[in-house]
Design a binder for these strands. Sequence first.
DNA 1: ATACTATGTTAAT
DNA 2: TTAACCTAGTATT
Length: 274
Amino acid sequence: MPEGHTVHRTANAFASEFGGQQVWVDSPQGRFSAGAALISGQKLKKSRAIGKQLFLLFENGLTLRIHLGIYGKWNWRTNIEAKSFLNQPVVGEVRARFFTETTVAELRGPTVCEILTNDEVQAVERRLGPDPLNPDKFTGDPRGEQYLRFLNKVQRSPKAIGLLLMDQVVVSGIGNVYRAELLFRAGIDPYTPGSRLSEEQIHSLWKDAVALLKVGVKTGFMITRKELFTKNPSKEDRNFVYKRENQPCRVCQTNISIAIEAGRKLYWCPTCQR
DNA sequence: ATACTATGTTAAT
DNA sequence: TTAACCTAGTATT
């Protein structure tokens, strides 16, 4: 159950645990048996993430695309005797297992786990918005091309910014937690149309997305309260508004509001965000 | 034992 | 706007 930071962590884990090595793949559950056969025993050439999607490129030119959806989960076992682990009974619905002699990664419940050709990969890439975790790496420019794509989409949309931040065409990698927290930190009412935001507001949302997602990659947690970035806060302490409906705002004590928007729970402070 | 929840997306209505 | 997809953990009976 990830937002973008989790997927980037997984991409990093694949690179360090499996990069350049022969990887074996099977599907205890059976639903990925055909796909597994296409890549099992191939060397992993490249591992990368765009937003919530993971792309694993193998030496034979095929790419495995994985999207965890809302239920998907990874279970990693490193520095083990993989053989003996694999001989034990499988626990749960394991869609796929990736393994070497000493490492096993189990995948459960993904929305997408499929083998793609390069053309198909490019088609997926074309419909993904800019990823704050892949922002203009080479120039380091905070107003670079990735940001301008985001700016353009937001500025020309009449839809609420609370919806736009969840739209993977507008920006990829942000989900329900970061959506709520980014808007709180920016002091923006979630129902403000994108076209009515100032460029300054849009830029601050982008910069903050970059910063928060980076903290997520580093710590593995979605910590959005600055004073706790370097600590190890409990789940209840990590955020300003997410899952805090009817509890007092940490800044102004107003009760946090909740609404269902596009089927997802939206949290905000009606006083701090207007 | 049953119900509900979840950091998501797509298709149908 | 709602349902469907799909799995595990937690809460409620």
